[in-house]
Nucleic acid binder design. Structure first.
Lengths: 114, 114
DNA sequence: CAGTTATATGCCTGTCAAGGAATAAAGACG
DNA sequence: CGTCTTTATTCCTTGACAGGCATATAACTG
């Protein structure tokens, strides 16, 4: 529940690396271990945290356990920062100029899309 | 710099509370202290972390220090989760949780794309 | 200047999380 | 059944961090 688990899970750089790796597709623990340069027990522990935060799901394949990303909690993150997104959108607008112009929202659809 | 500072700053619930409070507008330390039910030194320390993560800026007003949200780092967060957002958008599509059987050499071809 | 308000810092302590080594558990396979 | 493989768990140690208290710093006031 608590996005507390979500935040603290993603607070760790190794865990973010795992999540980023799983973005490319499901992986068994061994591959995650190697790709992230972690020890096997460490990987298992991190995966446990991610699992309990709901960020990953496991599928068992023989002795292997294939971990896959569950994007739902990240959607929660997205929801969390939604209010802030509005804020920085407007602050991009009024970068150096503070015009108390008319309340006519200038629809400035110039997305600096990179 | 490193979003490491950003993540670890936001990992703390009190700090998230402060950030959420500042979303409504700039506040001096005293108000933040009271609104979040923190002690004054604790508030100052949290604000220091937020400051070093670039999440807040200070403006000095007599003896008071008015803290305001800086939305830029949150934009970085948004950029971070952009790839995942695509993922959960598409997973909304495939509601019926189909776990792909990528065991041996499943070529993993065309998704049923209806 | 002394005194007062508002905020920041230092020190100390308890707590919690991470990493490493060893080991357990579960499945495959001769 | 014994063994190998893959992953999870336990124990232990260490380091980081938050909280509380006292105190320092800065700015205003008289």
């Amino acid at each position: 529940m608590s996005d507390a688990a979500l935040w603290s899970a993603l607070a760790d750089p190794h865990r973010r690396a795992i999540v980023a790796l799983l973005l490319a597709g499901p992986r068994p623990v061994g591959e995650i271990t190697e790709a992230c340069g972690l020890s096997q027990p460490s990987t298992s522990k991190h995966l446990k945290v991610l699992r309990e935060a709901g960020l990953v799901r496991v599928r068992q394949d023989a002795q292997r356990r294939v971990y896959a990303l569950d994007p739902a909690p990240i959607a929660a993150l997205d929801a969390w920062l939604a209010p802030y997104r509005r804020l920085w959108n407007s602050s991009l607008d009024t970068l150096g100029r503070r015009l108390d112009a008319t309340s006519d929202d200038t629809p400035h659809p110039a997305p600096p899309e990179d």
